[in-house]
Each structure stands twice: as structure tokens, then as C-alpha cells.
Lab assay of single mutants.
Amino acid sequence: LETFPLDVLVNTAAEDLPRGVDPSRKENYLSDEDFKAVFGMTRSAFANLPLWKQQNLKKEKGLF
């Protein structure tokens, strides 16, 4: 999966995202380093959170 810089994904409308980016899964296009910096946890820890908590975190970080 291709990764993009944080500033390309945060608070970006679906139509302005790079081609192929799923707007409902912007976090998947962050590098592992950016993911950890944004969410303060690994991808696996994030995946283990309840869906509502994942969505709330994504909203807080501008990735929803």
C-alpha cells in the first residue's frame, strides 16, 4: 500500500485525496512512523480498539 505524508491526508476532502486513497481509511496510508506519531500507538494496538474509539481518534486527528 502506498503511503502519503500526513499533511496530504489530514483534513482533506475525499475529492482532494491522491488517486486510490480510500477516504474512510486514511490512516492506512500513513507510514508506520507517522501513524505512531499521530495516534501514539502501533497499528495493531489501534486495530484492537473498539470501532467507536478508532473513529473518535480519527476525528480528533483530522483523518475521518
Rank of each mutant, 00 (worst) to 15 (best):
L1S: 12
L1F: 15
L1W: 14
L1I: 14
L1E: 09
L1G: 12
E2S: 11
E2C: 09
E2A: 14
T3S: 08
T3D: 03
T3G: 04
T3R: 08
F4D: 02
F4N: 02
F4E: 02
F4T: 03
P5F: 04
P5Q: 05
P5V: 03
P5C: 04
P5Y: 03
L6S: 03
L6V: 09
L6Q: 03
D7M: 09
D7Y: 11
V8T: 07
V8Y: 15
V8D: 05
L9S: 01
L9E: 02
V10A: 09
V10M: 13
V10G: 03
N11H: 11
N11S: 07
N11P: 03
N11T: 07
N11I: 05
N11D: 09
N11L: 07
T12S: 11
T12L: 08
A13D: 10
A13I: 09
A14I: 14
A14G: 09
A14Q: 11
E15Y: 04
E15P: 09
E15V: 09
E15K: 10
D16K: 04
L17T: 04
L17F: 08
L17D: 03
L17P: 06
L17C: 06
L17S: 04
P18M: 02
P18Y: 03
P18Q: 01
P18A: 01
P18C: 06
P18G: 04
R19P: 15
R19T: 15
R19F: 15
R19A: 15
R19E: 15
G20E: 13
G20Y: 07
G20Q: 09
V21P: 04
V21F: 06
V21S: 03
D22N: 07
D22V: 03
P23G: 07
P23V: 07
P23F: 04
S24W: 10
S24P: 02
S24C: 14
R25V: 08
R25K: 14
R25E: 05
R25Q: 10
R25D: 04
K26E: 03
K26C: 05
K26N: 03
K26L: 15
K26R: 15
K26Y: 03
N28F: 09
N28R: 08
N28E: 14
N28K: 08
Y29H: 12
Y29C: 03
Y29P: 02
Y29A: 06
L30N: 01
L30C: 02
L30T: 01
L30K: 01
L30Q: 01
L30H: 00
S31A: 08
S31Q: 04
D32C: 07
D32T: 10
D32V: 09
D32L: 13
D32F: 07
D32S: 08
E33M: 10
D34M: 05
D34V: 08
D34Y: 02
F35Q: 00
F35P: 00
F35Y: 03
F35W: 03
F35A: 00
K36V: 14
K36S: 14
A37P: 00
A37Y: 11
A37F: 14
V38C: 12
V38A: 09
V38W: 04
V38I: 09
F39A: 00
F39T: 01
F39P: 00
F39W: 01
F39C: 00
F39D: 00
G40W: 05
G40D: 14
G40Q: 15
M41A: 01
M41H: 04
M41S: 02
T42A: 11
T42D: 15
T42K: 08
T42C: 07
R43T: 04
R43W: 07
R43I: 06
R43A: 06
R43F: 09
S44E: 14
S44V: 15
S44W: 11
S44Y: 13
S44K: 11
S44T: 14
A45P: 01
A45N: 11
A45K: 12
F46K: 00
F46T: 00
F46M: 02
A47I: 08
A47G: 13
N48F: 10
N48V: 14
N48K: 13
N48E: 11
N48G: 14
N48P: 01
N48R: 11
N48D: 13
L49T: 04
L49A: 04
L49P: 00
L49D: 00
P50L: 03
P50Q: 05
P50H: 05
P50I: 02
P50M: 02
P50C: 06
P50K: 04
L51W: 11
L51Y: 11
L51R: 12
W52P: 09
W52L: 14
W52M: 10
K53R: 10
Q54V: 04
Q54Y: 01
Q55D: 14
Q55W: 08
Q55S: 08
Q55L: 13
Q55V: 13
Q55K: 09
Q55Y: 08
Q55E: 13
Q55G: 07
N56D: 14
N56S: 12
N56Q: 13
N56F: 09
N56V: 13
N56L: 10
L57W: 06
L57K: 05
L57Q: 03
L57R: 04
L57Y: 06
K58R: 07
K59I: 14
K59V: 12
K59S: 10
E60N: 09
E60H: 09
E60Y: 07
E60F: 06
K61S: 09
K61P: 01
K61V: 15
K61D: 01
G62L: 06
G62H: 07
G62V: 01
L63S: 01
L63T: 01
L63N: 02
L63K: 01
L63M: 07
L63D: 02
F64W: 15
F64E: 12
F64G: 15
